[in-house]
Design a protein around this nucleic acid. Structure first.
Length: 601
RNA sequence: CGGGAUGUAGCGCAGCUUGGUAGCGCAUCUGCUUUGGGAGCAGAGGGCCGCAGGUUCGAAUCCUGUCAUCCCGACCA
């Protein structure tokens, strides 16, 4: 390809609208252009990168035994109504009507469609297991598209769905996919970490995310990871062992008593006023589930509630903290004084813990975090403004046993829940892929069954596996760049080599450059020649900005048949006789390994 | 959706406070010179000042509305 013909409009300055590095560089280097918020044109170089990522994904998925197909982006609403997600998915689902006024959606993901396929086309256990995947555009009307390709409203995703007869077989496939994902990202030149995560709107029990750890602000999620073992988890899912409540050897409140605590509506104020550590307090927070049902959360005073964990613990679609009015309505007091000091514990059928006044007709369902289990002689609210109860101890520990939940936000320095030795550290990460065990959620909702070996009908057991193709490409830029521009890992670089004749009006230089360019091209190397009538500085700046892994310069020594060859990751170039350049380039491309980029970028 | 900000030439910005008919740098085009890290000189083209109302003799500038974009939060590949 000739740079004089290539549509790669580079800019001297970063675009004002871009905040994160990958967005700035991709726009500046002429890889992408925004059409509307969260919607981008992939210009020729970007599209080459995307096709490379796709191809790696395709090869590895095929190797794992999955079959590629293509499902419609435009989908009828009825299958979404059938699965229940027409209501649940919310505003993120792009809905539209056709000319007959039929409701349609643009596919954000394809569980409904694939389940329909399985339902109609797979009738027997003999045809299971099967894993089907596609690579196509996805549509999600994100509340806030941002960070360029990292979160668009339209993006390219590989989505795979597997069907099984048993949970064990799903487990097997789940780990096949986990291994496949590791290979895929490794082949793309990206180091990823498999991280436990929340399964969100897609549903199901178990899920993992694959994160590119970035250590920069640009990551989208906080990831906790153990400094001694392989444990890693999204902050909204991370478990941890918090240091036990300590009283520094002091004895507090050996007698239960109600004490006056004026203006102590925060934990901080309360610890100062009573001169106690926050770990001696049991905090009670009132939440509202799905805009109708109040419930209480008990957690140790020094800890924060992780609301995604809480959402799952109460199986709600939505939760929020109660406002002053609601607090008064359900507890009779104001924020900061809510507590269980004068309440009793009971158990509702279905095993829901209730806290409330003995005579109350409306006790509150309660989520009790593990962190309060071991508390002794602690402080709780007394549901009376200006008063707390001190020296409190659990009245009915037997009743509570088995009802503790983990709803706390993990903290830096907490002990690893897995090896119980290391401590948790945190980094930022970009989620580039995920794997879910869906179980029978969709097959049951959509009545998709097959005949079992003993002639009965059963629902398919499903798994699903996604990779953000466009996000993976952007994540690579986010991870590998320097002050001069993008640094592509060789496997996903749009071209491998750029040949730069320093001065196009110097016939010796130009002729040598053209010769090498043709030689490389004929040898099957992906190469561009910067034949533009620009000064050397411009070409070098652009070559760095565009991020080609290898640069070959035909300059002053062209007369001696010498070319300068330089890796994008290195500062210094070396002179190589023209006749040996092809061999050198081939050797560089073959010896690619991820370390080369990891150590220099 | 809540909070904050911005819309002026392809890109980055000034002008707005104090209304008088639009400017700078880069990019583009032409010519000459130059040629190893974003060249110099000379010249040229390009703007419903986001859009719609209003105030005014007169609006990029003041007022109202509206649309769009970006940042922070709740959501996610």
């Amino acid at each position: 390809m000739r740079m004089s013909k290539l549509l790669a409009p580079t800019l001297r300055e970063n675009p004002a609208e871009a905040e994160v590095v990958s967005h700035q560089l991709l726009v500046r280097a002429g890889y992408i252009r925004r059409l509307a918020s969260g919607i981008y044109n992939y210009l020729p170089l970007m599209w080459r990168v995307m096709k490379k990522v796709e191809q790696i994904v395709r090869e590895e998925m095929d190797k794992a035994g999955a079959q590629e197909l293509l499902m419609p982006i435009l989908q009828p609403a009825d299958i979404w109504q059938e699965s229940g997600r027409w209501e649940v998915y919310g505003k993120e689902l792009i809905r539209l009507k056709d000319r007959h006024d039929r409701d349609c959606v643009l596919g954000p993901t394809h569980e409904e469609v694939i389940t329909t396929i399985a339902k109609h086309e797979i009738h027997s256990y003999r045809h299971l297991p099967v894993n089907l995947y596609q690579i196509q555009n996805k549509y999600r009307d994100e509340i806030r598209p941002r960070f360029g390709l990292l979160r668009g409203r339209e993006f390219i995703m590989k989505d795979a769905y597997s069907f099984h007869t048993t949970e064990d077989d799903l487990d097997r496939e789940y780990y096949v996919m986990a291994d496949t994902y590791k290979s895929i990202f490794k082949r793309c030149g990206l180091e990823t970490r498999m991280v436990r995560s929340d399964s969100g709107a897609i549903g199901g029990d178990v899920s993992h995310e694959f994160m590119v750890l970035t250590h920069t602000h640009s990551g989208e999620c906080d990831v906790f990871y153990c400094n001694q073992c392989e444990y890693a988890a999204n902050s909204n899912r991370a478990e941890s062992i918090t240091p036990a409540a300590t009283t520094d050897g002091k004895e507090y409140f050996s007698q239960e008593a109600i004490v006056e605590t004026p203006d102590c509506s925060s934990i901080e104020a309360l610890t100062k006023f009573l001169k106690i550590p926050p770990t001696l307090i049991c905090k009670a927070l009132l939440y509202i589930k799905d805009e109708k049902e109040p419930f209480l959360v008990l957690i140790r005073g020094d800890l924060e509630v992780e609301e995604v964990k809480l959402l799952n613990a109460v199986q709600a679609y939505e939760i929020r903290m109660a406002n002053e009015e609601e607090v008064y309505k359900y507890t009779g007091t104001k924020k900061g004084y809510v507590g269980i000091g004068n309440w009793v514990i009971s158990l509702k059928e279905g095993g829901v813990l209730l806290f409330g006044k003995e005579q109350s007709s409306m006790p509150l369902p309660t989520v009790v975090d593990f962190s309060v289990k071991e508390l002794k002689n602690f402080v709780v609210g007394h549901n009376q403004a200006g008063y707390h109860k001190v020296g409190y101890n659990w009245h009915a520990p037997d009743l509570m046993e088995g009802h503790y939940k983990d709803v706390k936000l993990a903290r830096l320095g907490d002990t690893c829940p897995e090896c119980q030795k290391g401590t948790l550290e945190m980094t930022r990460g970009i989620e580039v892929g995920n794997i879910f065990k869906l179980g029978k959620k969709y097959s049951r909702a959509m009545n998709a069954t097959y005949s079992t070996e003993d002639g009965k009908e059963d629902f398919f057991i499903m798994g699903c596996y996604g990779i953000g193709i466009s996000r993976t490409a952007a994540a690579s830029v986010e991870r590998y760049h320097d002050e001069n521009g993008i640094i592509w890992p060789i496997p996903i670089a749009p071209y491998h080599v750029v040949v730069v004749p320093v001065n196009t009006s110097d016939e010796t230089q130009l002729a040598l450059a053209e010769r090498v360019y043709n030689e490389l091209k004929i040898a099957g190397i992906e190469v561009v020649i910067d034949d533009r009538d620009e000064r050397a500085g411009v070409k070098f700046k652009d070559a760095d900005l565009l991020g080609f892994p290898l640069r070959i310069t035909a300059g002053k020594k062209a007369g001696e048949g010498l070319l300068e060859v330089k890796l994008r990751t290195e500062k210094a170039a070396q002179d190589i006789p023209a006749a040996e350049v092809l061999a050198y380039v081939q050797q560089q491309l073959q010896s690619w390994n991820a370390e080369a980029v990891l150590t220099h970028a």
